[in-house]
Design a protein around this nucleic acid. Structure first.
Lengths: 153, 153
DNA sequence: TTCTTTGCAAATTCTTTGCACCGAA
DNA sequence: TTCGGTGCAAAGAATTTGCAAAGAA
């Protein structure tokens, strides 16, 4: 089932309507695979006054629906919401470069095991988790040492 | 070295000043060990008009200094900043009950190992990490099933 | 004295809401 | 025809900033 089909089913089940704006946003969101926030999505949409324009409140409302429908994952980074594909996409965690703000995905079976062990130990009903490792990515480390060399010349 | 001594040293090294407000906030913050956000801290401070009142902007500015000084850790939860003791306190991660909003600490050596392995694999300079498991704590599970039983009566 | 700090008010950033009109089913 | 959806403007929540007065060293 494609994200579109899945979303249509969700709308049906909730008695919601399939509008131009929702289709437009779904297409933009599943067009590419990168992580994004509300502003980045709005930037890649048709501008105000153009055809297919979608207002900011509608973007926020629709992103919430995508999360409810199980199409997107939401998490917080630097105080704002970041979204990524969820539907049909395997569980993973992230490395976050605090220099270039890039998110790198990683998977580790160990993580799930820790989650289960810890939850059992604390009698805790784990629903989901966020494991984010902050640091500097390889590119930024290289760029920085290059810059330092040039500074000395 | 107590947090106060450590902070005084930090202020010295930066050429900053030891004010009533900073001392007041340090005392309030290290008085208890719970996690807190800016609002919770402000609530436990003397009210406006009272002696030892500290304004909201100063609370935010000072919390940032405590983080810079290595006294506090900051992380994001539900879109706002949460602080906890860092200085002299061992590394740990959290279970977060989405029902009662309680934060439960846990430690796991495995977590550090995953962080190291993943960082090496991706040539990533890891500085810190946030591992938060969302779910329902034991108390809330029990309370909920109690409520359900009563509903049926 | 000098330069940092503070409180106030206002600005910012991100997100949500009220409401009148529009539109899918 | 009936509700749900949309855009607009405005409201909110959390946090930050400009500035003049107060205060530490």
């Amino acid at each position: 089932m494609t994200p579109l089909q899945r979303f249509e089913e969700y709308l049906q089940s909730k008695g919601l309507r399939n509008t131009d704006q929702r289709r437009q946003l779904l297409e933009q969101v599943f067009n590419r695979h990168e992580h994004f926030d509300a502003d980045q999505l709005i930037e890649q949409l048709p501008a105000k006054g153009t055809i297919n324009y979608v207002s900011r409140p509608t973007v926020y409302r629709t992103l919430r629906e995508f999360v409810d429908a199980g199409l997107l994952h939401r998490f917080e980074l630097d105080g704002r919401s970041v979204y990524e594909h969820d539907y049909g996409y395997p569980q993973h965690d992230h490395l976050y470069c605090t220099k270039c703000r890039k998110l790198i995905e990683f998977t580790s079976e160990e993580t799930i095991k820790i989650r289960e062990d810890v939850a059992k130990l604390h009698r805790f009903r784990a629903k989901e988790h966020r494991f984010i490792i902050h640091g500097i990515c390889d590119e930024c480390v290289k760029k920085r040492s290059r810059d330092r060399r040039q500074d000395r010349v």
